[in-house]
């Protein structure tokens, strides 16, 4: 790094002006305590709370079914069904058939749903709707409820269906 120090002679005396990229600017201020942004598969970022299939059903009917269908299978926005179709001629990608982690479902509902009324749900409501959506694909039972501990134990049907592209490059497209 180049250091330039200019000595300027002024009427009133000698003033030293320092110029150069070695001078660091540091304007960040302490982040808010307990700041959080994302729920991850290891459970980090999940808020404390819980919700059941029964609680989730009532919320889902009112706030989700219009776009996703009462059974979660409304064409174009389906979130249930399709398990076992991924390697076939008509792969059907839904939460149940495709998503590898249940935490992803919590994170997405929590940040982006319901569409047009985002971030209106509290933590318990997000757990409840998450649990109900998993129930629509038969991943949890009708008497189940999930919380910040049990959510990360949920085994999604397609848990092992993903691999990281080598070098973050789509190998299938350029190794030809």
């Amino acid at each position: 790094m180049r250091k330039l120090v200019f000595l300027l002679l002024l009427h009133a005396g000698v003033v030293q002006a320092e110029l150069g990229s070695h001078i660091k600017i540091r304007l960040g201020v302490a982040a808010p305590e307990n700041f959080e942004s994302v729920a991850a598969p290891d459970g980090s970022g999940l808020p404390i709370g819980s919700g059941s299939v029964t609680e989730g059903k009532a919320l889902y009917i009112n706030q989700c079914a219009a776009c996703h269908g009462l059974d979660g299978k409304l064409a174009g926005n389906a979130i249930a069904g399709g398990v076992g179709t991924l390697a076939g001629d008509r792969p059907f990608k839904t939460v149940g058939s495709y998503w590898p982690y249940a935490t992803t479902l919590f994170d997405y509902i929590n940040r982006a749903m319901p569409y047009g009324n985002e971030k209106s749900l509290n933590a318990n409501e997000v757990y409840a709707i998450t649990t109900y959506v998993l129930y629509l694909s038969g991943i949890v039972g009708e008497n189940d409820s999930l919380n910040e501990s049990s959510l990360i134990e949920v085994q999604m049907p397609n848990r092992d269906g993903f691999r990281t592209a080598k070098g973050y490059v789509s190998a299938s497209l350029h190794e030809k």
């Binding site: 991924l86 390697a87 076939g88 792969p91 990608k93 939460v95 495709y98 998503w99 590898p100 982690y101 992803t104 997405y108 269906g161 993903f162 691999r163 990281t164 592209a165 973050y168 490059v169 789509s170 190998a171 299938s172 497209l173």
Partner: peptide, 17 residues
């Protein structure tokens, strides 16, 4: 995961391409 992943004919999806 749900989007921006590349599902291949063998049923495996490439992620982070």
């Amino acid at each position: 995961t749900s989007k921006y992943s590349d599902l291949m004919t063998n049923g495996i999806a490439e992620q982070f391409s």
